[in-house]
Design a protein around this nucleic acid. Structure first.
Length: 579
DNA sequence: GCCGTTTTCGGCCCGACTGTTTTCAGTCG
């Protein structure tokens, strides 16, 4: 996938141009093109050259650069910039609080060669005296370097959301609030987030700011104004709090939810209509009359757009769709009828089959599929054929006991290094649903991994591929797999692909989900729960589906029992053997 | 560098906070 590589280069070019103090609109053009390439479902390699300029934000010049990269593997203009500006300047710029101007200034005047050297200069007060820099700025630079070293990179949503909820809970108790919401990328359910954004409504903002700065896990206060404050908490996350009045709450919520790109697009649309949008509302420029802002819907309505759900606000086509009234009716947690990837205490899960079934029924599900590991996964106490047969009896017994609920007997069968399932076909045949997943050989070549999964999908008894890319956010990269090939085969064989809702997995990711939808691949959202509370992970999986524009009809486990089996069970649909 | 039911040239989103300033540039979101 060259899209990502080119997107990275365009973004880098923007960084360099910023340091060179180039035209800000030119810089924005590169950033926007980068963003659009990244979220593009189509490979630029496959697109005819003359169609590149149809990509939003790609004109004649950038199309030529893309072609140059595809043909030669490099972009001359980028190589030129790299020669011109030493990489250390970019490094300095990456320190929080230091922007392009200061980075270049420091390099120009002091020829700093490393971050370590800069740290020494700052602590020895050798920066003081440079234009616009005195003691306080030196302190901030030292703080910024410390922050950089702690590695404040993006964290999995599953880690950050509970922390954010706890902060909100404490503020509710300790501050005079009328309303409070988590905004930012958390509200958009982005799979990883960089900071926590919170919006509050209060008649006494000062008291709220005081309570905020005084929270027990606050380590450092970065800034504190009357309507906006930022702190660093013990978990090494930045938390931003904004306080506004009732009359602006909707506008502020939209502003603070982002994405920035989405907001910029809305503001551009507003300008063309003689309007202006900021975090206080939407205004008519002519007489500065306020037209709305109390409710988040106001600006959308006035601009003639459908209301865009937060998960779609990435400027990846949602504004065009909203203009034409064709936003999807997104799938919701309430649409989910059952979980098809759950582990019991027969392998490495905590609960008995009966406990799981009761808990699932209590959640309002109609069915559940028990998918314990197969024999090869010894560490997870995987099931042999004999134990699988014994488990069948228990599933049958519990099914008799629990009324108006269906427990499917399944397996999460390991896809072995040669692509064969870790259980014989005779055993798989007896099961209701077979999830097949890769748990070993992550380092294999792209061809090997891809052919393993393709081979598994062609097995007539395999109905679902579990966690299709194998990544663990922040811990392990995805294995190298040709996802386009996997998607193609999934469409051909009618095999469903899983969105694994486990917060560290969340794969397929939103971009591939979108792609899957485009070519008619079935999607299943499963939690991979090993313990009953993990059933709650479903919301994370659904959020990925929503970010991938999926509707209820695109998700297999929104179907009732009968339709579900028809869709997943090959001998009933017999699609698999035809292709 | 992109883009056009006002435009093929001249526009291009908006505001809070900080530090170093005495009116504002830089950074961030």
């Amino acid at each position: 996938m060259k899209n990502r590589e080119i997107a990275m280069i365009f973004n880098r070019i923007a960084d360099y141009l910023e340091i060179k103090n180039d035209n800000p609109f030119r810089i924005r053009a590169y950033r926007r093109a980068s963003q659009n390439l990244e979220s593009l479902t189509r490979n630029v390699e496959d697109a005819p050259e003359e169609e590149l300029t149809k990509i939003p934000g790609i004109g004649k010049d950038l199309a030529a650069k893309i072609i140059e990269y595809l043909k030669t593997g490099r972009i001359a203009a980028y190589e030129e910039l790299k020669r011109e500006i030493p990489p250390i300047v970019l490094e300095i710029e990456s320190i929080p609080g230091i922007g392009p101007r200061t980075a270049m200034l420091i390099y120009d005047k002091l020829r700093v060669q490393s971050i370590d050297e800069l740290e020494r200069f700052a602590s020895e007060h050798k920066l003081s005296g440079l234009p616009g820099i005195k003691e306080k700025t030196e302190e901030n630079i030292l703080k910024g370097i410390a922050m950089l070293r702690r590695g404040m990179e993006r964290r999995p949503l599953g880690h950050v959301l509970p922390i954010a909820q706890e902060i909100v809970g404490r503020l509710r108790q300790n501050a005079p609030l009328k309303r409070i919401d988590i905004a930012g990328s958390i509200r958009r359910w982005k799979e990883t987030v960089k900071d926590i954004d919170i919006l509050a409504q209060s008649d006494d903002p000062e008291a709220v700011m005081k309570a905020f700065a005084g929270l027990p896990n606050v380590k450092d206060v970065l800034m504190r104004g009357p309507t906006r404050s930022s702190v660093i908490i013990k978990e090494d996350l930045q938390v931003d709090l904004r306080v506004v009045g009732k009359e602006s709450y909707g506008a502020a919520l939209a502003y603070f939810t982002g994405s920035k790109e989405h907001n910029v697009r809305l503001r551009e649309m507003a300008v063309k209509k003689g309007l202006s949008i900021n975090e206080y509302g939407i205004f008519r420029v002519r007489d500065n009359r306020k037209l709305g802002g109390e409710h988040e819907e106001d600006a959308y309505k006035i601009l003639g757009l459908q209301f865009v759900p937060p998960e779609l606000r990435e400027d990846s086509g949602e504004i065009e769709a909203a203009l034409e009234n064709r936003l999807p009716q997104l799938v919701s947690v309430e649409d989910i009828r059952g979980d098809l990837h759950v582990h019991s205490n027969w392998s490495d899960g905590v609960n008995s089959i009966e406990q799981l079934a009761i808990a699932a029924k209590e959640r309002g599900y109609s069915y559940l599929c028990i998918t314990d590991h197969s024999q090869g996964l010894g560490i997870a106490h995987g099931l042999t054929v004999e134990r699988l047969m014994a488990q069948r009896k228990e599933v049958d017994a519990v099914n008799k006991k629990i009324k108006n609920f269906k427990i499917f007997h399944g397996t999460e069968v390991d896809i072995k290094s040669d692509g064969l399932p870790d259980l014989p076909d005779e055993a798989l045949k007896t099961l209701d649903i077979v999830v097949a997943s890769i748990h070993s050989g992550f380092k294999q070549s792209r061809e090997q991994i891809t052919s393993r999964i393709v081979k598994a999908m062609k097995n007539p008894y395999v109905s679902i591929i579990g966690h299709p890319t194998g990544r663990l956010l922040g811990e392990r990269d995805a294995y190298d797999v040709d996802m386009d090939e996997v998607l193609k085969t999934a469409a051909e064989t009618g095999t469903a692909l899983e969105i694994n809702a486990y917060p560290l997995r969340l794969d397929l990711n939103d971009i591939y989900v979108m792609k899957a939808k485009e070519i008619g691949v079935f999607i299943v959202i499963n939690t991979d729960a090993h313990d009953i509370p993990q059933f709650d992970f479903m919301r994370y999986g659904v959020s990925i589906a929503r970010r991938g524009w999926l509707e209820k009809k695109d998700v297999v486990n929104t179907l009732d029992v009968k339709q579900l089996l028809k869709r997943l069970k090959p001998e009933l649909s017999s699609d698999k053997n035809i292709h």
